[in-house]
Simulated assay, not measured.
Amino acid sequence: MTTVIAGLLLAAGAGRRYGRPKALVELAGEPLVRRGVRLLRDGGCIPVHVVLGAGADEVPELPGAVPIRHDSWTEGLGSSLRRGLASLPAEVPAAVVVLVDQPLLHPVAVRRVRAAYTGGALVAVATYAGRPGHPVLLGRAVWPLLDGYAIGDRGARDLLRDRPDLVVGVPCDDVGSPLDVDTPADLPRLVSDG
């Protein structure tokens, strides 16, 4: 029997350095928010929830995903993470979390962190050259711990640092890239490097 693991795409930020919400930025004619949904679905995640905030009214339809409006998105990434996890159905045992501004992540990385959970990991983190990145899988048992960590612009990073006993690193150097889009100049760089 296959374990159903949700996907959670965090796409609520205003993209201040970019000049507009990154969820709306296009790569190869596709908005990054749709690309993120496709990443999670192709990685086997069901359901996929997308946390939206800035620019939520401009986001195109998201086939295969549940949009979650987060009116307190200005509180930072941590509140978006907590809001997204709280939106998931009670029967979901774990969620794979990705950020909308990392368009070169690969579905194989999503499948690998899901497999680590199936193998017993409570938290599984994709690593690139030994450094933690995304996707990050969080088992439901650790979600309550985020109340003390996912604050302001902090997501789960400090929890992962403070509780290495919970974390399984999953090498993903051979698939995709964790590079992110912060400014308009980053997008052409990603396309040429990716």
Rank of each mutant, 00 (worst) to 15 (best):
G169C: 07
H70S: 03
G19E: 07
R34A: 11
A54W: 10
D147G: 12
V48I: 13
E26Q: 15
V37E: 07
E75N: 05
L77A: 05
G176C: 06
D193M: 11
L160W: 10
V142I: 13
V33M: 07
D186K: 01
G36S: 00
L145G: 01
L40T: 00
G13C: 01
G15F: 00
P171S: 06
R35D: 02
A95G: 05
P31E: 05
Y117S: 04
T74S: 13
S177L: 09
R38A: 15
G55Q: 02
G19K: 09
R34Y: 01
P103G: 05
V97R: 08
V191L: 15
D71L: 15
A65T: 08
A6Q: 01
G36T: 05
V98W: 00
R69V: 12
R69F: 10
R41A: 14
G152R: 12
A86H: 07
D147K: 00
R41Q: 12
S87T: 03
D147V: 00
G13N: 15
R83K: 14
R131D: 13
V191D: 10
P89D: 09
A12W: 03
Y128M: 02
R157Y: 11
G152V: 07
T74E: 15
Y18D: 06
V123I: 14
G155W: 03
E75G: 08
V50L: 10
V191P: 11
L62S: 08
R82H: 09
R161M: 01
A115H: 13
V110S: 01
L77I: 12
D186T: 08
L8V: 07
A54M: 11
Y149L: 05
V100A: 08
L8A: 06
D101S: 08
E30Q: 14
E75V: 01
A116H: 09
T118G: 13
L39H: 09
L105G: 07
R161S: 12
P178Q: 08
Y117Q: 10
V48T: 11
V98G: 01
P93W: 02
L146M: 14
A23N: 10
G148H: 08
R189I: 11
D182Y: 06
E61N: 02
E30N: 02
R157G: 06
I46S: 15
V100P: 05
A115F: 02
A129E: 15
P188V: 03
P188G: 11
T127K: 02
A90E: 15
V123T: 02
V110I: 09
A12Q: 14
T3E: 13
L40P: 06
G176I: 06
